[in-house]
């Protein structure tokens, strides 16, 4: 039986991550006044804790995969994607700062964020694989285009 409220876990990770952003903002503000590193250390500890929870969530999902099959996991997928989008933005901000040599201290935060993104992709893979999928009633224009493109290539190949 699935006992983990995955949606709540993912949403709470999202909120936690916003807390991380606040801490990081404090770091940048204070750093411009005095050489101070505790907000960054605290922020990194927070990030590491989020990463740990994400890893545990993934392990739990892998273990429970047979029970997940065919259940509606769309809410969880949306929550995971919302968190993923946020993390990619965070990664972009950290990369921009690190490119300036005076922010090399952010490297560990970037490493943790990159690992979080990887784990979240692993979570999404499990969720997307196992969620209930209903075949589409109407074929999309994109599907028609994709098939037409391959067909055109084949026809060209055989000189038709």
């Amino acid at each position: 039986m699935i006992t983990l409220d995955l949606n709540s876990v993912l949403n709470s990770q999202y909120r936690e991550n916003r807390g991380y952003k606040k801490l990081l903002s404090w770091y940048f503000l204070l750093r411009s006044l005095i050489p101070i590193s505790w907000p960054l250390k605290k922020a990194n500890r927070k990030l590491a804790a989020i990463l740990k929870t994400l890893k545990e969530t993934h392990a739990y999902l892998v273990e429970k995969t047979p029970e997940l099959k065919g259940t509606d996991l769309h809410t969880e997928i949306r929550s995971a994607e919302k968190l993923l989008e946020y993390l990619y933005e965070q990664q972009g901000v950290l990369e921009d700062h690190i490119s300036q040599s005076r922010f090399r201290s952010l490297q560990s935060a970037l490493d943790i964020t990159s690992e979080m993104i990887e784990v979240l992709h692993n979570i999404l893979r499990v969720l997307q694989k196992n969620t209930l999928k209903q075949p589409l009633a109407n074929r999309s224009e994109e599907a028609i285009l994709a098939v037409a493109r391959s067909k055109k290539t084949l026809n060209k190949l055989y000189g038709r």
Partner: peptide, 12 residues
């Protein structure tokens, strides 16, 4: 759209 893979020629 992961299921929509296609084959093309270089000259396309």
């Amino acid at each position: 759209r992961m299921h929509l893979m296609t084959m093309s020629f270089g000259e396309d």
